[in-house]
Design a protein around this nucleic acid. Sequence first.
DNA 1: TAATTAATTTGTAATCGTTACAATATAGTA
DNA 2: TACTATATTGTAACGATTACAAATTAATTA
Lengths: 142, 142
Amino acid sequence: MNMTLEELTNKLKKKKIRLSYQRIKILEYINNHRIHPTVDQIYNDLRKEVPTLSKTTVYNTLNTLADSNLVKVITIGDNEARYDVTIKNHGHFKCESCGIIFDFNIDFNSFKIDGLSNFQINQKDIYFKGLCPKCIKKDASE
Amino acid sequence: MNMTLEELTNKLKKKKIRLSYQRIKILEYINNHRIHPTVDQIYNDLRKEVPTLSKTTVYNTLNTLADSNLVKVITIGDNEARYDVTIKNHGHFKCESCGIIFDFNIDFNSFKIDGLSNFQINQKDIYFKGLCPKCIKKDASE
DNA sequence: TAATTAATTTGTAATCGTTACAATATAGTA
DNA sequence: TACTATATTGTAACGATTACAAATTAATTA
């Protein structure tokens, strides 16, 4: 799961994104912390290693990476966006109690849809909500 | 598609939501304007009929109606929420060019998912993005 | 390696959607 | 009709995100 510096820089080079310390660190963070972090989480964690980091840079960089499809923006109903590595065939489940976002596998080709002929589909987002096993137990014991 | 005043008031009564002119008007608007409107659209359109209407009331009412499942909040990546009638088995497609949100039919039971055993699923949101037929043509002719 | 130029980072201020709050008005009930 | 709880309203506050300009840095060329 953890990626080397070389792998990360290659990812950026392939997309013709200019290398910078901040960009590499942010891309590294997204790849190595698969917790669907918010901008604030990324900013506060990385600030320990990169003291000069600005929150604007985090926003700019994430937008750049998202435009190039190197990270994925998750907008699962919250007020703040969350960020994820780009991996195919997975949906997101948000626990309404603890707020944790879980990945799950879903076969996007199994969908039986009707009403999108002649549409060009570029992106499919699957967001589920409910209770995770831990919170179901917790609720039951109260 | 258009609902009578009686049908609307019954919907509210069933959910034990106190009747008010504003609530009925907003619920009526959502039911009769299936364009996935924003708060601003609802507010500006209804202000013509209900001059004293406050935007806060639109927000409050929509939250109340959403809590009771009488309307559905669509957060398809925009900065602003959109609102829809509550109808089962449909997904939302947003055209990245013109911004229009289209409904499409999708069989939620056809999903082959893996990784959510022991999870309690309360809500499933399907958001697709891409280009609608009209915008595909427009782009091609430029 | 040094100089050049274009792009990036940074901090602050602005923006915009949404919510908090307190005063006024209204709905449901007795 | 009077009472009480709830809803509406307008303003102010909030929080996530973006705009902007100055300082810094990356890639390029000599």
